[in-house]
Amino acid sequence: MNDYILLFVIILGVNLLPAFGPPTWSIILLFSLNTDLPVVALVLIGALAAASGRLALAYAFRFFGGYLPAKYRQNLEAARQALEARQRNMILALGLFALSPLPSAQLFAAAGFAGIRLLGFTLAFFAGRLVSYSIYAYSAKGIRETSMNDLFTSMFSSPMGIALQVAMIGFVVLLVRIDWSKLLNKVGVKDASEKSANGSSKP
């Protein structure tokens, strides 16, 4: 039982970090190699803890977003409206994104900042993680324990890994600072004019 609790707490804590935390799949691999926990338990606990941590992270950013200057809050509101207009596509994209080992902390931070409805967002993430963690956990038995040191070292020293984290942080900053209402205004006017034209052409 202690291993189950330890796994949940570690993954939950890692997924509360907004950046530069070790990827959850690496923790799944580590527990798979060094404990007797069944793969099904590793996957379910890992996905549940990761989704819970990311959801809490998103709500934390939503709370702090209320203290941003009015201009930035208006930008985020415009971004939220644009994203929720195509929410089905966004959730599908998140589900596919969750299958990859790419960092998701900044994506949830952005969702929290923008005030996007988080239930479907988190469920898509959870479903994607069930698949990806299953792949990692079942393949872990073929990985030598000596390779784990190299794996963890590369996570924090790889220029590509660091650049990706910085780029994702930049994405969150841009989400707040871009005037989305101005950027999307032309598209909105075009859509409105097309609807008007279509409506006037009907008998």
Rank of each mutant, 00 (worst) to 15 (best):
I45P: 01
L37I: 14
E84T: 12
L68A: 12
R86H: 14
F64Q: 07
S158H: 11
R62F: 00
I162D: 00
N34H: 10
S134K: 05
V40L: 10
A127S: 15
N89P: 01
A41H: 04
M168R: 14
F31Q: 02
G95Q: 07
K202W: 02
G170P: 04
D36M: 10
S104A: 14
L92T: 11
L130K: 08
L33K: 09
G13P: 00
A127N: 06
Y136P: 00
G65T: 13
V172K: 02
A47C: 06
F121Y: 13
L99W: 05
I116D: 07
A163Y: 00
L119I: 12
G95N: 09
D36W: 00
K141N: 10
F125Y: 11
A50W: 03
A85C: 08
S200T: 08
A82E: 11
L183N: 03
N2S: 12
L175I: 09
A85E: 13
P38I: 13
I178E: 04
S157V: 15
I11C: 02
V187W: 12
L107G: 06
P69S: 14
L92D: 08
S134E: 10
F63C: 08
L102I: 06
V176F: 01
A19V: 14
G115R: 13
A60Y: 01
E84I: 11
V187A: 12
V173M: 09
G128L: 13
V172C: 07
W25Y: 09
L48H: 03
Q106H: 10
V187P: 00
A109D: 00
W180K: 15
L37S: 09
K195A: 08
A70E: 05
A51K: 13
P101G: 15
L118M: 15
R144Y: 00
I116A: 12
L164D: 03
A192D: 02
L55M: 10
E194C: 05
R144N: 03
K186G: 00
Y4T: 01
P103V: 06
S193H: 14
G112P: 01
V187N: 04
P22Y: 15
L83F: 13
R62Q: 11
V187R: 11
L7K: 14
I169V: 14
N198H: 10
S196F: 12
V131C: 12
L99D: 01
L12T: 08
V131I: 14
Y138D: 02
L151G: 00
A110I: 07
I143K: 11
S104N: 10
A56Q: 02
S32K: 09
N185F: 06
T153E: 03
L118H: 06
S193I: 02
A78Q: 05
R117E: 08
M90H: 13
R177C: 05
A197H: 11
A98D: 04
V9N: 04
G95M: 15
M160H: 06
